[in-house]
């Protein structure tokens, strides 16, 4: 015969046992969901860091490639400009100019034209603009876009996901704590006196419902 019945208060032991069992199972489920949320936060952080590395690697490598090509273009540009200026000077020579006057210019023109031709092989000509300049930003943008097709270059989306999962895991911890307190309330029914037993039953039941409803709302994303 249990004490509750002895003292004339009718809180069936079977009900208490059932409530304790429900609370324990609910607590275990909440703990499991919380653990999954924490794990998801860690995974999203790792993905975010991977994306950060991808982003910065792409930024660095596209700079190395583009400015390497731009350096080759610079040599091409230098020699082409000199070739154009030499052509203008040759064209401006008087008709009676001697071979001695023309020959050095013609030789230099050949040299710089050859150098320009060689330099032109060293960079991708598709980035040459019509006005003879080099589309450096377009090349960098294209290199970046190509990488974005292949790899994740957006760390902020992953980090936002991680933060969201972290908030969820903290909220589930609160729900777990509420259920833990409900469990204590149910357990104390055994040892507290008279009216307190009903208070404990009421408080425990309220906390049990609050913990379960809270968990459902958290899982549905209503408390985010």
């Amino acid at each position: 015969m249990d004490k509750t019945e002895e003292q004339g208060f009718r809180v069936p032991m079977a009900l208490i046992a059932l409530l304790i069992a429900i609370t324990s199972v609910a607590g275990a489920i909440v703990a499991w969901r919380g653990s999954i949320a924490a794990d998801a936060a860690g995974d999203a952080d790792t993905a975010g860091l991977r994306a950060t590395i991808n982003l910065n690697e792409t930024r660095a490598l596209s700079a190395v490639v583009a400015f390497g090509d731009y350096g080759a273009f610079t040599q091409f540009y230098r020699n082409r400009q000199l070739a154009q200026l030499l052509e203008e000077d040759l064209a401006a020579q008087p008709e009676d100019a001697t071979e001695e006057q023309i020959a050095p210019l013609a030789e230099e023109l050949v040299d710089v034209t050859d150098s320009a031709t060689v330099a032109q092989q060293a960079f991708p000509n598709e980035y040459l603009n019509r006005d003879g300049t080099y589309a450096l930003e377009r090349q960098q943008g294209q290199l970046f876009a190509d990488e974005a097709q292949e790899r994740d270059l957006n760390p902020s989306a992953n980090f936002a996901e991680a933060d969201q999962a972290r908030v969820k895991s903290e909220q589930l911890l609160i729900a777990f704590s509420v259920l833990a307190v409900a469990l204590i309330a149910f357990t104390l029914i055994e040892v507290v006196g008279k009216y307190a037993k009903y208070l404990m039953l009421a408080v425990g039941s309220l906390l049990l419902v609050a913990g379960i409803v809270g968990t459902i709302l958290i899982e549905m994303g209503r408390l985010a």
Partner: peptide
């Protein structure tokens, strides 16, 4: 702690990337 650690790692990588691309330029 995790969030600040993640920020620190992320900033370190970004710093490296900016340094390399800036030095190249």
């Amino acid at each position: 702690d995790d969030r600040a650690g993640r920020d620190a790692n992320s900033l370190a990588v970004e710093m490296l990337g900016q340094n390399v691309s800036g030095s190249t330029r």
